[in-house]
């Protein structure tokens, strides 16, 4: 089995190198590339395509969110992991809506960083109660189409918003914890779709407005 190729975008060199060290220390992970800015990352990641990309948000110049959005708009297959200190920020949610599949807290111990990366690669995602709430309200926004979420996904979101741990949710719904993570991953995918549709609607005037008639 090929190693999971990881790229790291982080402007602070200590952290970037620390992360590279952690990744490279792990047998099934390889650090493909590291970038100190979103601009560098954008050109680099187009050609040198990793499996996962750990993306810091606050970068000099354009943000990590812009970088994710642009690459996702170009149908990049990279799975982005937002690298953040504080998980409940609007920026994290924005990055998730722009196309990130998960996030990683910067104070996470190294062994957990590895677990999280492996989980993400396997199609599982983390989600805090606060983000779950934001996701729910994002799908319930007036003007949004009938929710694309399945009943199970909605159940999971509801429990997450109440502060249930994955373990608890798995127990309550009678499914494996990994399945919960995968559901969350799907929810993020739907969030991207919704977000992109929204962006298109914004651009062309949205459904029901006169601008749409021209198309």
């Amino acid at each position: 089995m090929d190693n999971i190729r990881v790229s790291i975008v982080e402007d602070i060199i200590e952290i970037r190198e620390g992360m590279r060290f952690i990744v490279n220390q792990t047998p099934d992970l390889t650090c493909l590339s590291t970038y100190g800015s979103a601009e560098e990352a954008l050109t680099g990641l187009m050609h040198d395509v990793p499996d996962l990309c750990i993306m810091d948000i606050a970068l000099p110049g354009s943000t990590g969110i812009d970088c994710i959005r642009k690459l996702k708009a170009a149908d990049s297959p990279i799975q982005f992991v937002v690298f953040t200190i504080y998980e409940n920020s609007d920026q994290v949610f924005e990055a998730l809506a722009a196309g990130a599949s998960g996030y990683l807290l910067k104070d996470t111990p190294p062994d957990r960083i590895i677990t999280a990366l492996r989980d993400l690669y396997a199609g599982g995602s983390p989600m805090s109660a606060s983000i779950a709430r934001k996701v729910v309200s994002s799908f319930q926004r007036p003007g949004a189409a009938a929710t694309p979420l399945s009943t199970r996904e909605q159940e999971i979101l509801t429990l997450l918003a109440k502060g249930f741990l994955y373990k608890e949710i798995a127990q309550q719904l009678g499914i494996a914890t990994g399945t919960v993570r995968q559901h969350i991953h799907h929810i993020y995918d739907k969030l991207h779709v919704q977000n992109r549709t929204e962006a298109i609607n914004k651009f062309f005037g949205g459904p029901g407005s006169s601008g749409a008639q021209g198309l």
Binding site: I12, E14, G18, A58, I85, Y86, K106, D107
Partner: peptide, 18 residues
């Protein structure tokens, strides 16, 4: 706090680990 202190503390953490 998040941007400055957070970055600094994270740097400190990673430095410690290194």
């Amino acid at each position: 706090m998040h941007d400055d202190m957070g970055s600094g503390l994270t740097s400190l953490l990673f430095l410690g680990r290194s």
